[in-house]
């Protein structure tokens, strides 16, 4: 494969941003030599993957904060060894008898080393205890079906009972079409759980990461007391192509970026990956939560 071909494949992978209700697993099936080069989907500059990874998967040129696996996110967020996972044994059934749905979920579960598109649990961040949720877009575009909805709901219910704050790292293509109406109802279910947590005085910080779209934007992701976004990530309700088809014109490049959403009034602050732990722990401190003793920092932290 010549170098131009290689770029095309990498670009195809990263410009996959069909949102709304879709997930786009087929793109993942394309053979990509991921360990060599990174081409930024925002600025199109190319870097050695090593440089990109050492930079916490942030584009060195334009500061686009690229997608992480749940393991990567957890490692750079939680204090070392503090994470206790919840609900690792929930497995989706196939409510509408969608062809080969179980197969698809099993494959993603094996590839991503988790039962579903969100990992939830309890951890400390610089010594502050919280309930945490991390969505992984590598798992069926982190679309929300029964298990994702149930894990989020249980996480909020647990936090309500234990009077803990919740931090959700959101990323999703939206509701999981393969589960039909049952997936739509997860929007109501999770939003209800957030509301009960909020009514009980609970603090909820939503951290929007790439891409936060569709039914997740239209439910728990938009209900934080405080909404943080990573730089340059995509946040929106409708997919770009759907809007372009509706209005028959091309949208500006920065449409639905974190910065655009902040200008529109929907994001409290944009926080760089390297500063995220500090910001989160400061918010928890400002809300009067106690710092626990003996918590270990993450690797390579100042």
């Amino acid at each position: 494969m010549d170098i131009e071909e290689l770029f095309k494949v990498v670009k195809a992978r990263f410009t996959d941003d069909s949102h709304g209700t879709a997930d786009k697993n087929e793109i993942r099936d394309v053979e990509i030599p991921q360990d060599l080069l990174f081409k930024c989907p925002r600025c199109s500059n190319v870097f050695y993957n090593e440089e990109f990874v050492n930079n916490k998967k942030v584009c060195p040129k334009c500061n686009y904060h690229a997608r992480l696996t749940w393991q990567e996110r957890l490692e750079m967020t939680a204090d070392e060894g503090s994470f206790i996972p919840f609900d690792e044994n929930l497995h989706s059934l196939n409510p509408i008898g969608f062809p080969r749905y179980e197969e698809k979920v099993h494959k993603c579960a094996a590839d991503c080393n988790t039962n579903e598109a969100i990992v939830t649990g309890e951890c400390t961040i610089r010594g502050y205890r919280c309930v945490i949720g991390i969505m992984d877009s590598h798992f069926m575009m982190a679309s929300m079906g029964s298990v994702v909805g149930e894990k989020i709901t249980r996480a909020f219910e647990y936090a309500t009972e234990k009077k803990l704050p919740v931090i959700m790292f959101t990323a999703s293509g939206g509701a999981r079409m393969q589960e039909g109406i049952v997936s739509l109802m997860q929007m109501a279910k999770t939003s209800g759980a957030v509301k009960l947590h909020s009514d009980a005085g609970g603090l909820y910080i939503a951290v929007m990461t790439d891409p936060t779209t569709g039914g997740v934007t239209a439910s728990f992701a938009s209900l934080g007391d405080i909404t943080i976004a990573e730089p340059k990530v995509l946040i929106g309700f409708a997919g770009r192509r759907v809007i372009e088809d509706t209005i028959r014109q091309r949208l500006p490049d920065d449409f639905q970026s974190a910065e655009f959403q902040q200008d529109c009034g929907f994001v409290d602050m944009i926080v760089e990956r390297g500063m995220m732990r500090k910001r989160l722990s400061n918010i928890l401190k400002l809300h009067g939560f106690p710092k626990e003793r003996g918590s270990k920092p993450v690797k390579n932290e100042e």
Binding site: M187, A188, S191, G192, V194, K195, S198, T217, A218, S219, F220, A221, S222, L223, G236, F237, A238, I243, F255, Q256, C264, G265, F266
Partner: peptide, 14 residues
Amino acid sequence: EKRGQGEAIAKNLA
């Protein structure tokens, strides 16, 4: 989108 379609729906659900 500019006026927050996602946020408006989410708020109603909650």
